[in-house]
Simulated scan of single mutants.
Amino acid sequence: MRVLVVDDHPLFREGLTIAIETMPDVEVVGEAGDGEAAVEAAGRLAPDIVVMDLHMPGTNGIDATRRIVAEHPGIAVLVLTMLDGDDSVFAAMRAGARGYLLKGAERQEIARSLRAVAAGEVVFSAAIASRVLAWFATGGRSALAPFPELTDREREILDLVARGLTNPAIARRLFLSDKTVRNHVSNVFAKLQVADRAEAVARARDAGLGTGPL
């Protein structure tokens, strides 16, 4: 089983690589520190599985997963992240991930999950699995919109920010004043506890916003 490890924290990535290398019949064929490098390495190294972090600079794990699965359908993506919100889980699965584990998972759980996704199965951490089962049990009605702390208008503006639109461009598109858009953007930053636009974009894209046609 050939594995590509993707995480932007070098020490965690190194430790994970060492742990995976000790598993029987598993070989780590490469590492990547961001989503763009992950997409390139997946095409070049042709791993069986990509172990993917989500919150990374530049191309995030959601977008990288979507591109890898689209370009290389035979590669399975197993998410391993600190993000445990419903928005991140469902965005990852919509992008094509076959598994979702939380950082802190035991080595045995990671090993079982690698074997499972390699066999075409879908796996979740126990805490994640209970929420996914509840979602299916209610026909999807329990799934929250991304960032439920935001108003519908704030979520709409965050989506446009994640698409790369400037405040004036958003104002023109939504027929709002520049000041109103600035106020909404400031409220979004405060509610999401992000420091700047780049961090807000990363959070939004991790949650599946900023994709698809305008």
Rank of each mutant, 00 (worst) to 15 (best):
R131Y: 07
A46C: 07
A70K: 06
G61V: 02
K103E: 13
R44G: 04
I128P: 05
G139E: 04
A111L: 09
N183R: 09
I128F: 07
K191H: 11
D53K: 00
R112L: 15
V29K: 00
H72C: 02
T59P: 03
L165G: 11
V28E: 04
A127T: 04
T151V: 01
F136I: 03
L114D: 09
A198D: 12
G43N: 03
G210H: 08
I18Y: 14
F136C: 08
L11I: 14
T81P: 10
G208D: 12
P213K: 11
L16P: 13
V188E: 12
V89I: 14
S125T: 00
L4M: 10
A41M: 00
D206V: 15
R115S: 14
T81R: 08
G212C: 13
R182V: 05
E109G: 09
A190H: 14
L214E: 14
G212H: 12
E40V: 07
V29A: 07
D53I: 03
R94V: 09
M56K: 00
R131N: 09
N167F: 05
R203M: 13
R115Q: 11
I110M: 13
F189Y: 15
L101C: 08
D34G: 02
D206Y: 02
A70V: 06
P73H: 00
A119S: 13
M23G: 10
A32K: 02
T166S: 13
T211C: 08
T180S: 13
A118F: 00
A204M: 03
V117Q: 05
L102N: 04
A207W: 04
Q108K: 07
V201I: 10
K191T: 12
A129G: 06
D8Q: 05
D8T: 07
D196I: 06
S113F: 10
D159N: 15
T65G: 03
D196P: 07
D87Q: 11
D86Q: 14
L80G: 10
L101V: 12
V132Q: 11
V50I: 00
R13Y: 14
A143I: 15
A129S: 03
L150D: 10
V161K: 09
D48V: 01
S177F: 01
I62N: 04
P148H: 14
E40C: 06
V122L: 11
M93E: 13
L158C: 08
G15I: 15
L144E: 15
V50N: 05
V79W: 00
E106N: 00
D48T: 01
M56S: 03
M93Y: 12
V29N: 07
V5N: 14
H72S: 05
V5C: 15
R67G: 01
G43F: 04
G104R: 10
D25R: 03
G30M: 01
R155A: 01
H72D: 04
A38N: 08
D152T: 01
D48Y: 00
T65R: 08
D196H: 13
G58H: 02
F90E: 12
E36V: 01
L209P: 00
D34C: 02
Y100R: 06
F124Y: 10
F12T: 15
L83S: 14
G99L: 04
R203E: 15
F90M: 12
D159I: 12
S130G: 02
H9D: 13
R13F: 15
A41G: 01
P168A: 04
M93N: 12
A91R: 08
A46M: 07
G35C: 06
K103N: 11
